[in-house]
Nucleic acid binder design. Structure first.
Length: 220
DNA sequence: ACCCAGGGTCATA
DNA sequence: TATGACCATGGG
């Protein structure tokens, strides 16, 4: 009997346990892009405070961000941590959008090239690495680019599907090779992995009621 | 007090 | 190519 594709089987178990996660938690594509930068190595709760500050100040807007002083913008996003670093990164993102002529409608970036072209362009922006680029492509622009994060690496290494030291691109390839090229699937899958990580890996490993226990070769 | 979060850049070897 | 220092807030 043929063993089922584990990449899909795991997705189905996660979805059965948790249900749809309704990602990304952001109201507009631009808010998703900003959130993708602000959440780098940062708890989402802190990002929400920063985004609330931006909204309150009328600064959740490409041009508004470019016009703010660095000190002023840094103060608004302070709760998200690394505020000086992220001030520069947000301005780089907005500068990129403005240079592309989509400052007034950032979602229009989606019409400026194929997936590979957009990904390359995003990666060239200061402060946008692979995960952030893929998050923007998938959750802001609706392109099928699978997002890999620290939770993904930890969980799938433990499941025996990864060795652990693979580079980002390799992990991304394996997921995409094992799944249909489907935006809704990629969207839900990554969100479910984050849910799994938060609920069963941190702050303490809770394997007892993990939805993947039956698939885990080295469960305690 | 310590560990970590939905990473990325930069200097160094 | 591959480490390591660095960035900083807030919750457990």
């Amino acid at each position: 009997m043929k063993r089922r594709n584990p990449w899909l089987a795991i997705y189905e178990r996660l979805l059965a346990r948790y249900g749809p996660q309704h990602w990304w938690p952001g109201e507009t594509p631009f808010e998703v892009m900003v959130g993708a930068v602000l959440t780098q190595n940062t708890a989402w709760g802190n990002v929400e405070k920063a985004i609330a500050n931006l909204k309150q100040a009328g600064a959740l807007d490409c041009r508004a961000i470019l016009e703010r002083s660095d000190a002023d913008l840094a103060e608004l996003i302070r709760p998200a941590g690394y505020f000086n670093v992220k001030t520069r990164r947000l301005k780089a993102l907005c500068g990129f959008l403005a240079a592309r002529g989509v400052a007034e409608a950032p979602e229009a970036l989606a019409g400026q090239g194929n997936l590979g072209q957009l990904r390359t362009a995003l990666l060239a922006v200061h402060g946008i690495g692979e995960e952030t680029a893929d998050s923007i492509l998938l959750y802001a622009l609706g392109r099928p680019s699978f997002v890999v994060d620290a939770y993904t690496r930890r969980a799938y290494t433990r499941l025996g599907l990864l060795e652990g030291g693979e580079p980002y691109a390799e992990i991304k390839r394996r997921f995409e090779a094992g799944l249909a090229r489907d935006v809704a699937l990629y969207n839900e899958y990554h969100a479910l992995i984050v849910r799994l990580g938060k609920e069963h890996c941190r702050p303490r490993p809770r394997c007892a009621d993990c939805p993947l226990l039956a698939l885990c070769p080295n469960a305690s």
